[in-house]
């Protein structure tokens, strides 16, 4: 059952990722991205990482992608304004991406399928469990993260502000 779910999710994930790249309209790209992120959240659920799955949907699909959408609409980019690259560049881009995939695959090909203990701790991905780790071992990085956000926020506001002359 879960194996079938894994494959469905994988196919949808890859399909939507491709559509992100090849859609003509930016808004469609955004929507496919959101779809792709939902699929990834599904993968997280399959892996018993429930907390991350929810956070993924909230942060990525809920916040980040809305930001993207908002920007696109704000800039009125929905129309197909993007002048196309030359075909040569497109071919080069596909070849390059394919080459990278080829290399990655060929690097991974020799890797053995390490047998995993099938009985794993199903509670590990729960909020309580992760919270214990986050607020004990990763306290300092977590607090640093707030500073990062603060500075990002200040930077974004500063950049987005209209210049007053």
């Amino acid at each position: 059952m879960s194996v079938i779910a894994f494959y469905i999710l994988t196919v949808l994930c890859i399909f939507s990722a491709l559509m992100v790249v090849f859609s003509k309209k930016p808004v469609h790209s955004v929507l496919y991205t959101i779809f792709c992120f939902f699929n990834i959240a599904g993968h997280f659920l399959l892996l018993n990482a429930q907390f991350l799955a929810i956070v993924h949907i909230i942060v990525y699909a809920g916040a980040i992608m809305v930001l993207f959408l908002f920007t696109i609409m704000f800039l009125n980019l929905n129309a197909e304004v993007e002048p196309h690259k030359s075909n040569l560049l497109k071919v080069a881009a596909v070849v390059c991406g394919g080459l990278l995939l080829l290399i990655l695959v060929s690097c991974l090909k020799g890797a053995e399928n390490i047998p995993v203990n099938p009985m794993l701790d199903t509670q590990m991905g729960m909020v309580k469990n992760l919270g214990m780790v986050l607020y004990n071992e990763y306290m300092l990085p977590f607090e640093m993260l707030s500073i990062l956000f603060l500075s990002a926020m200040v930077g974004a506001v500063l950049l987005g502000k209209k210049e007053t002359k």
Binding site: A92, I103, C107
Partner: peptide, 20 residues
């Protein structure tokens, strides 16, 4: 910038080839 990104990707590919 497009060309620069090409350069980055080709560089990564070369690194993989070299490493493996």
């Amino acid at each position: 910038i497009g060309l620069y990104i090409f350069g980055i990707v080709i560089g990564i590919i070369c690194m993989f080839v070299f490493k493996f």
